[in-house]
Amino acid sequence: MKLEGKYTFKAARQKVWDVLLDQKVLASCLPGCERLEEVAPDQFEARLKIGVASVKGTYDGKVRILEKHPISSYRMEVEGSGAPGFVKGEATISLEDKGDKTDILYSGEAQIGGLVASIGQRMLGGVTKLMVNQFFKAMEKKIQ
C-alpha cells in the first residue's frame, strides 16, 4: 500500500527536525506505541498496539531511522510481528522550508500481513492512512 502526503508545520526546519527525531516525541506520537527503547543509535525496539477502536493488534518489533540528512530528509522503517500477523512500513520524510513554516513530505509503503489483511480488507487502507495522519497530527501538536 502506497502512502504519500504533505503536512505544513508552523515552525522552522531545524525545530521540526529536532522534534521529529526526538525519541520521547517519537514514542508519544507513534500510534499505539506502548514501549520504545533505543537499542542502538537510531534503532529502537518497540511494542505497538495498532488499530482502531477495540480492533487492535499488538506487535513487537523495531523502529529504525536511516539515511539521515540533517535537516532535510530521513527514512523511517517500522516493522513488527504479533498474534495477528505482521506490520511493516517504511517512508522517506523530507523537510522543506516554506517561509517561516516547514513542509513535510512523506512517501512510502505500508504492508500488513496475516489476519488483518485477510479479513480486514474493507477498512485496511483507510485505517492505515488514518494512523499516518494521527502520527503527523501528534507531531504537529508537539511542535506548537
Binding site: 504492508q111 500481513g113 496475516g114 480488507q121
Partner: peptide, 14 residues
C-alpha cells in the same frame, strides 16, 4: 491476493 502475496478474501465478507 495483493501484490505482496497477502490473501484478501478469508471470510464471506470478501
Amino acid at each position: 491476493y495483493d501484490e505482496s502475496g497477502q490473501f484478501l478474501a478469508a471470510s464471506f465478507m470478501d
